[in-house]
């Protein structure tokens, strides 16, 4: 696969922030930091989780993952609930905490080293095996269902990641637009302030489909 960058290199969704209502603008700007100290995650857990999050969304810009980690930490510190949980899985606090330990143990068993010290490819292989519930057998998997762990980490990561304005700019998302609204919505049209595609021909060729 050819690695592709954005279609919209000149577009920054935050250029429009003056057009957003203050509640929305405030919620989005808080994602740029600074962030308070972690409440739930320990420093050790944060290091492993950060690497996992980066792999899950295939990015390594630390400023974005500062926000992702903050969001996950706040979610896990909170008591509100997690919408749904498999009857076989423990609550998310335990699933993530014990799951991170189990991932380290798995790395030890397979590669003789902790998760952070093994190769990136080995780290990816571990995550891929969890997704399909086929990771090498360790006793922890009887109480930490692999797929539930993988899905939880993935959803906890993509929600904040795709809420970061830098990512919005990259994918050409127009953002909140309240109270301004969108007016040119038909095929081929865009409001003048929206992301406009660059290098159309080159991207089409890159597509490789």
């Amino acid at each position: 696969m050819i690695e592709r960058n954005t279609y919209y290199p000149d577009y920054d969704v935050l250029d429009q922030i003056e057009e957003w209502d203050p509640v929305t603008a405030d919620a989005v700007l808080k994602r740029l930091g600074p962030f308070p100290a972690l409440e739930f995650l320990t420093g050790d857990e944060e290091q492993r989780l950060r690497v996992i999050c980066k792999h899950l969304v295939y990015d390594n810009r630390d400023d974005i993952f500062d926000w992702v980690i903050h969001f996950i930490d706040q979610t896990l510190a909170d008591e509100k609930g997690e919408y749904q949980r498999s009857p076989d899985a423990p609550p998310e606090k335990i699933l993530v905490r014990e799951g991170l330990k189990a991932i380290d143990k798995l790395a030890q068993k397979l590669y003789g080293n902790d998760f952070l010290s093994i190769d990136v490819k080995e780290q990816f292989d571990i995550l891929a095996s969890l997704q399909v519930g086929k990771a090498a057998s360790i006793p922890e998997w009887s109480t930490i269902p692999q797929k539930d762990l993988f899905d939880k980490l993935l959803v906890l990561t993509v929600a904040p990641y795709y809420s970061h304005p830098t990512i919005w700019s990259e994918i050409g998302y127009g953002g909140p637009a309240h109270p301004r609204g969108y007016y040119r919505i038909e095929l081929g049209l865009a409001d003048p302030w929206e992301a406009q595609r660059k290098d159309v021909t080159e991207k089409e060729e890159d597509n490789g489909e």
Binding site: D26, A27, K80, G81, Y83, Q84
Partner: peptide, 16 residues
Amino acid sequence: ASDELHAYSLNWQDTR
């Protein structure tokens, strides 16, 4: 807020 994450509070979040 016109924001997907912020809107989580509108949902029934209690664990089922």
